[in-house]
């Protein structure tokens, strides 16, 4: 069966601690609960959670939605965003099945990156590796005062911003991610995949579209 791989790449650096990281955890939980009500996502979507603090971690490897268990993300350390980009690229290269004689290809993976800071590591190196993979939709979300110029390099077509990292804004973001994955899993079932923000559902008012 053709899978829709979805990578959630989440900033878990110290600045996210407290309400923001709790909101992220709730958001992931909400995302999964909502997607489970969508038959197409339930059969097609595979989720992975990658977090980055002073280093990047594959917190949940790519898992089918029915088996997925939301992790508990804790915040500490600095912002190894470059390493996270490299890690998600390596994971995608390892996980995503490409067409071969004996196997049907997966859909191109979706990536959602959320950060509230500036990379503190070798960002360009990670970015270069990230760009080597073929992605479906890439959405970067800047929380608070994150550097949107950096994020534009990751997702030239889809950078969104949250002014606050409170539960309401975060919940709006994850609802929107849910709708995007839902829509993508619908369109992939109809033989087409999404690229760029214009093909995702319109973001709610809490989310500002930067690009």
């Amino acid at each position: 069966m053709r899978r829709l791989p979805v990578y959630l790449v989440l900033d878990a650096s110290g600045s996210m601690s407290g309400e923001p990281i709790q909101a992220v955890n709730n958001g992931v939980q909400m995302l999964v609960s909502a997607l489970r009500q969508d038959p197409q996502a339930l059969e097609t979507a595979y989720l992975s959670v990658i977090t980055f603090d002073s280093s990047a971690h594959e917190l949940v490897p790519l898992t089918d939605l029915p088996s997925f268990q939301a992790p508990n993300v804790t915040a500490s350390g600095v912002t190894a965003m470059g390493e996270a980009l490299e890690l998600v690229a390596n994971c995608a290269r390892r996980d995503v099945i490409k067409a071969s004689g004996t196997q049907k290809a997966d859909w191109r993976p979706m990536v959602f990156i959320m950060t509230d800071g500036m990379p503190t590591d070798d960002f360009e190196k990670g970015l270069a590796r990230f760009k080597q993979e073929k992605w479906g939709a890439i959405v970067a979300c800047a929380v608070n005062d994150a550097d949107t110029d950096i994020l534009k390099k990751i997702a030239p077509e889809s950078v969104v911003a949250l002014d606050t990292a409170d539960s309401a804004a975060m919940s709006a973001f994850f609802k929107w991610v849910t709708a995007s994955i839902g829509l993508s899993s619908k369109s992939v079932q109809n033989g087409k995949e999404l690229e760029g923000l214009d093909q995702l559902p319109p973001p709610p008012p809490e989310i500002q579209v930067v690009v």
């Binding site: 053709r2 490409k98 067409a99 049907k104 290809a105 997966d106 859909w107 073929k134 992939v188 033989g191």
Partner: peptide, 9 residues
């Protein structure tokens, strides 16, 4: 008549 990834036709 497909591509490297699913849905590419």
């Amino acid at each position: 008549d497909g591509g490297e990834h699913a849905g590419q036709t």
